[in-house]
Amino acid sequence: MVHEVKPTPDRTLDLRTVLCPLNFVRAKLALEEMTSGQVLEVILDDGEPMRNVPRSIKSEGHMIIDVLKLADDSYRLLIRK
């Protein structure tokens, strides 16, 4: 359980209240505009979005480097392209 120092995100996307699969599509579009190695921060609602989006991001070949639960029960993911 080695935790690296959390990088500062290059871009942030608040996807709270955005429904599946649009939340994933928006994250994907954002990642497409970024360069390899950059970090995208996305904020997702609990429930369906948290069950689906991280898995789709992983299958696209990106790396989820951190998951943090926020005060309003949403989640913040750090994704390295």
Binding site: M1, H3, D46, M50, R51, P54, R55, I64, D66, V67, K69, Y75
Partner: peptide, 15 residues
């Protein structure tokens, strides 16, 4: 267990 970072995503994903 050595790789797990305890991010809880799997707990979230499990319906």
């Amino acid at each position: 267990e050595d790789l797990c970072t305890g991010c809880e995503l799997c707990v979230k994903a499990c319906e």
